[in-house]
Design a protein around this nucleic acid. Structure first.
Lengths: 232, 232
DNA sequence: TGTTTGGGTGACGAGACTGTGACGGCAGGA
DNA sequence: TCCTGCCGTCACAGTCTCGTCACCCAAACA
């Protein structure tokens, strides 16, 4: 299911862990030398790294830092294995920003559970850095909107509003949905707040404000095509 | 190289276009019936669709709308083929939000050029919807930052600032770089503006403010690990 | 046609946000 | 040790932003 890189110089541990991981359907890559971790991680692009803090030559924290410093390995979650005796390692493991840690000796079952948890947690959700609908270009990276290449100056509220609408163009967004997405309100569907911001947004968009449609008693929507409202 | 769906009821055109596309290393799928476009697009997930506006039964604009209305095909760029005689189609092709259009008859070379341009333009840049560094969780979707699950209320300026810093943790961001990224300033490296916002940000982060480090005469950085400054 | 309901619009005041200048302090170099 | 340059900190005033209210208008409905 996932590819996991196990870093430990103790062959027994590597074998034990590998066995359990493979039994759960994971692919295992292993390395015993700390200096080989980064190259191996780059080469195999694992979904998770199990990293022993005690390694000959270079310690795990250093290895972890190098992984974090490299763009290619930065996003890979790491579970630290620390020795029971060294309480400091425990702290180091956490402080170094590892996604989780485990104290040796550990039960394979616990490691499996933690790996499962971290993998679940690290299911990265990707989004488009830029979204283009007709003349509209939403730049999520720079948190800005431009129309036909011209930057439109929006306040944070307006930006959140149009971002929500543009996330699903031609789909009706109810008042409560928008209030929830932009303001975090539970319901309160009565005030004029939403209407006012819709108006401000439309004004700033000028002619293109027509892309924001109203469906009476239903909500608002961003229309990718202006004209009559889509019959959807 | 790319998979391209060609939609036209004229077999000559389909063959001509296919020939040229294949010559450039593209994979070609074709459909003659407008109603079959959406299912085919869903099935084959092409990187681009060349769509004739004149189709028997259902016209290209309608087909385009359906493609746009479906989440699975929404992001696929479309090049419209319009007939010379119908000037209105030309406008319809543009207004419908097609990524480009071409008037029949066209030279295969021009179509190839436009396809190349659209493909290049549509190389979607993906980003992580959430970025996690230690206790920090940057939610780009909701434009918010939380630390250990607790939401930190930031102004738009502060948010842009920490977003920029967190985009490349443990990397020094010069004053001019930050001023440019957050404020769009060209240089103006002298005012206290940046310092003030850095301070406000640190204050709001509380203890975690220590993650924002200062490198005298060099700039600021987001440290994934607190303690001494990284020697990088 | 009259009534009801829901959205559009404009104005306004409270409060938030921002950029700046003054000043102090620390670090690095002479 | 002193000096200089750079950053931290603070206070402040101007501006922006936001939510609300009152009122108007149009659509839906009886």
């Amino acid at each position: 299911m996932s590819r996991i890189l196990v870093v430990d110089d103790e062959k027994d541990i590597v074998e034990l862990v590998s066995l359990h991981l493979q039994r759960e359907g994971h692919e295992v890559v292993s390395v015993g030398n700390g200096l080989a971790v980064l190259p191996m991680a780059v080469k195999t692009a694992p979904d998770l790294i199990v990293l022993d803090i005690m390694l000959p030559g270079i310690d795990g924290v250093q290895v972890h830092r190098r992984l974090r410093a490299d763009t290619r390995t930065r996003h890979i979650p790491v579970i630290m294995l620390t020795a029971r005796a060294q309480t400091n390692d425990r702290i180091a493991g956490l402080e170094s920003g590892a996604d989780d840690y485990l104290t040796k000796p550990f039960s394979p079952r616990e490691l499996m559970l933690r790996i499962g948890a971290v993998l679940r947690r690290s299911q990265k959700v990707v989004m488009l850095a830029e979204q283009r609908i007709g003349e509209f270009l939403l730049d999520r990276k720079n948190m800005s909107l431009s129309i036909s290449g011209k930057l439109v100056e929006l306040t944070i509220t307006e930006l959140k509003l149009i971002t929500t609408l543009m996330a699903n163009p031609d789909v009706i967004h109810s008042r409560s949905e928008l209030l929830s997405a932009v303001w975090g309100y539970a319901d309160d569907t009565h005030s004029r707040t939403l209407d006012t911001h819709i108006k401000r947004l439309r004004d700033k968009l000028g002619d293109h404000g027509r892309h924001i449609g109203t469906l009476r008693r239903q909500g608002y929507l961003f229309q990718s095509v202006v004209g009559e409202l889509t019959d959807a």
